[in-house]
């Protein structure tokens, strides 16, 4: 049996102490703790449904062992906000109708956020590159691209006002 130990990390801005076995993935741990917005898909790093931010950078939580994120800041889509308000990416996905069944949406938004951090003014190739690890079988991506473009503009506006 794999050893279990308690690690400290931050989840969505909240300091947590979490008991997890050595072989637990971050995906398994997050869902055990009730963060059901983090979805399990292919469990191979192809679909991106399980994406979360670790220190601001998106990773597939199915490919990370929980112990390896000790001391780091994990953010799920539910932890994204801007100055306490609804995050522009979430707003834009709703407005653009970039959501159908919704299973891929948390991962898409997390991946988009990670991409926009490096590339605040993305062209379509940048968006394609940023979302290349997220599969969506409903939307055909067109409205997803619309949403990311809109949110990028809103985020740039918020940045210039700050």
């Amino acid at each position: 049996m794999a050893e279990t130990k308690t690690i400290a990390l931050t989840i969505n801005g909240r300091d947590r102490k979490v008991a997890a076995p050595a072989n637990a993935t971050l995906l398994e741990t997050l869902r055990e703790l009730g963060y059901f917005e983090v979805k399990s898909g292919c469990e191979k790093g192809d679909c991106g449904a399980c994406a979360v931010l670790v220190d601001g950078e998106a990773i597939d939580s199915c490919l990370a062992l929980t112990w390896t994120v000790a001391g780091r800041a994990v953010t799920t889509v539910a932890g994204l906000s801007l100055g306490g308000a609804k995050h522009p990416l979430i707003e834009a996905f709703e407005k653009s109708g970039a959501v159908q069944c919704g299973y891929c949406t948390p991962g898409l938004i997390v991946a988009a956020q990670s991409m926009l951090k490096d590339t605040p003014e993305p062209d379509d190739d940048d968006i394609r590159l940023g979302l290349s690890g997220n599969l969506c079988r409903c939307t055909g991506y067109t409205k997803v691209f619309d949403a990311v473009r809109d949110a990028a503009a809103v985020l740039r506006g918020a940045e210039s006002q700050a």
Binding site: G45, G48, D60, A111, S114, L129, G130, G133, N134
Partner: peptide
């Protein structure tokens, strides 16, 4: 690196 996996894989 641009064509290596998806973004989350490239980040890890």
């Amino acid at each position: 690196a641009r064509v290596f996996g998806g973004q989350m894989v490239r980040n890890a």
